[in-house]
Amino acid sequence: MLRWLAKRIIAAALVVFVVTSLVFVVTHIFTDPATVSLPLEATEEHRAQRRAALGLDRPLSTQYWDFVSGLVVGDLGESFWQSQPASKLVLERLPATLKLVAGATVVTVLLAAPLGMLAAWWERRFADHAVLGFSMAAISAPPFWIGYLLIIVFAVQLGWVPTFGSAGFVSLILPSLAIGLASAGRLSQMTRRGIVEELRKPYAVTALSRGFSRSYTIVHHTFRNVASGFVTMTGWELTRMFTGYTVVIEVVFAWPGVGRLAIHAIENRDLILVQAAVVVLATLVVVTNLLVDIARRMIDPRVDLA
């Protein structure tokens, strides 16, 4: 187990390294942070000055070395828009994004697992169709639209929660729902299908033949066997959240997270800050996948240790 874990951590670190190197390639070879940061009418002289100020006139290999060695100590360069270390700006916003993703994950899991089990329990009956209807609606609607809808109904009309900002637990509810509903829709259908399949397997038939009730068999026998897939899919949903949904939803709800920071950085042509945000989000995705692997290993003793 420890050996396996060590291997996984090393592999994850390698992935982070490769991804951040790709980010460097995009920001330094395909574009030029100095040009991007200057107005369009800037002269070549201005650009050269800016390049020299940012150290961009040095050979690429030197720049890459600086970038990598900076990465190791957590230095991701200086934001020109804010004139502060980019890593500091991103890490300040990180807790807000993590809170949001945590909230959305709670919504996803708490909706998907019971809904999936319910739909399987009432297979081809009304409740099953109702869950399917909910799932299709949740999957089809774009999260930003769900977000606006939630704001209009619960914040503007009913006034139960603030329309924006991150003031305490209550303000977390709507953005979590806006992100989590679509994930819950996909996951509940996956759970339902998995349980229906498992219920026909001999071990489930055996459990039923021993006199365990259908609900006991679903919860204590079949769900365990779909749990591994459930965790994997939840991991994928988390990945989608980090790389897409949070960005959109943070803007809709004026949520002070990394996604919204990245949008502002793009608006202000601050490539160094964009790069820092991407590096941090990519790292989160890799860490998520690592956690999923560990969880699967804990659920299913047959998962390959190689």
């Binding site: 397997k201 001999p202 071990y203 055996t206 026998h221 365990r224 066997n225 659920i299």
Partner: peptide
């Protein structure tokens, strides 16, 4: 089929 009639995860 005793191979698959026991719960694999218990």
């Amino acid at each position: 089929d005793p191979m698959v009639s026991l719960n694999p995860l218990k």
